[in-house]
Design a protein around this nucleic acid. Structure first.
Lengths: 244, 244
DNA sequence: CGGAATGTTGATTATATTCAACTGTTGTGG
DNA sequence: CCACAACAGTTGAATATAATCAACATTCCG
């Protein structure tokens, strides 16, 4: 079951929540701060704080104010559209060096998604104020901000395209293909699912049952082999064929 | 059938495509340029051009470069995710004083959508270059840009929420509700569909057949009355009930 | 080891699409 | 101004897709 504890209840009370070195290191690695001068990063970092949470923790809730932009140091979060019936539609995962919430934070609007930890996770929270200041002071950061927001839009359009455009079989095939691309080459390759099959199913907008059936079908057709979360892609061309 | 003519083939060859007054007037009304000083607007406008197109014209194509940000003066465009089978998934409509393409234009990435005219439409095209310049020179514009992109993200998340979250009946009910809100009050009210029922169906992600059936059901239940594109909402509370 | 979480499988059902036939509406060229 | 073609909308029947329900198997961890 989901832990509904407040973020603060999830965090260690140790004194390193503002350790400058640590916060700066995390912030520096976010694409949002690429090529931003160290002094400006340090300034922002001095207003940011670190949070830890354990698997299952609810970090932000749809409709409530997000305390600031979230940047992941390690662990894994999921961004979720909660449905009335308690069901969860997973929009995306958020891993190390990825950030979330630029849009709602800058607009000071209620968060449009639930944010839930899928594993023990450490992240920084960067409040609006220093972001605004930096936006007006540092052209590089301002450009990064525009780039990040623009990329977010493109990503969301692709997301809609994938969700409404194609059948679950195609979505799954396309996802497996995208995993294979990381490995390079075009031959058979072994990949590891980054999350459980159930979580992945939710991410792809299907149920775990459907997921199971689709995977079995791919296996029966000799396109993939399976051993737990480890999947070997045997026939990449045919898989790509299904994806289209 | 869709007209596949190039934009240039759609445009009058008359000399007012760069009429400064006209272009400035259109650009000024875009939220993107709100509170931006006249001289800066004029500068951008001097690099923009006006296009006319008739109903059915294809203004931009998925995968091709967008010549710049599109701002509508009058008429109506639709933003479409084209499917392989020729089917069209309509993401949104774009009416007067709305703009499109900030994200892909600034990233200089291929356009993620088809843009098609639903009526005779006039719009401006603002190339990247002057936008970039203004972004670095004018803080108000830079802020507008960030706001526009951020709002676009929030809008897209809501869009995904609506599409994957609820049944077609709920989506339709929610849409009718949103039309009613413009009219104010909470009692019965008459609204006019802004587009044909078929186009609206595509916008809501359903077929015209399903749309027809859903509307009839609402009528049979006494929630609405219908006369062509004119719809009277009779029982707003119950309609809102369906939407949730 | 035991219990919870995760995954599998079959049967049934809900939702909306597709196909097909038909009616009504609109706008245009003769 | 009318005829006619193109478009828009309606309705029914058959179908496809994936969700839901229910039962069971497997794996993961403390």
């Amino acid at each position: 079951m989901l832990q509904l504890n407040d973020v603060n209840g999830q965090c260690g009370t140790n004194g390193n929540r503002r350790d400058p070195r640590l916060v700066e290191g995390i912030v520096t690695n976010l694409p949002l701060f690429r090529d931003v001068g160290h002094s400006n990063v340090a300034l922002v970092a001095s207003h940011a704080r670190i949070e830890h949470c354990r698997r299952g923790a609810l970090i932000a809730r749809q409709g409530e104010r997000l305390p600031g932009v979230i940047g992941v140091a390690y662990g894994l979060l999921k961004l979720v559209l909660p449905r009335r019936n308690g069901e969860e539609k997973v929009l995306r995962f958020l891993g190390p060096n990825e950030s979330f919430g630029e849009a709602v934070t800058l607009l000071e609007r209620p968060c449009s998604l639930d944010v839930v930890a899928l594993a023990e996770t450490m992240f920084v929270v960067i409040p609006v104020r220093p972001l605004r200041q930096l936006q007006e002071r540092d052209i590089t950061f301002a450009n990064n901000l525009v780039r990040t927001l623009a990329e977010g839009q493109v990503r969301l359009v692709r997301e809609i395209d994938a969700r409404i455009g194609s059948s679950s079989a195609k979505r799954l095939a396309a996802y497996l293909e995208s995993l294979a691309k990381f490995e390079g080459g075009s031959g058979a390759c072994a990949v590891q699912l980054p999350v459980t099959k159930s979580a992945l199913a939710a991410r792809l907008g299907i149920t775990k049952e459907t997921m199971s059936r689709l995977l079995r079908e791919l296996k029966d057709q000799g396109l993939i082999a399976m051993a737990g979360g480890a999947i070997t892609i045997l026939d990449r061309p045919r898989l790509a064929g299904i994806a289209n």
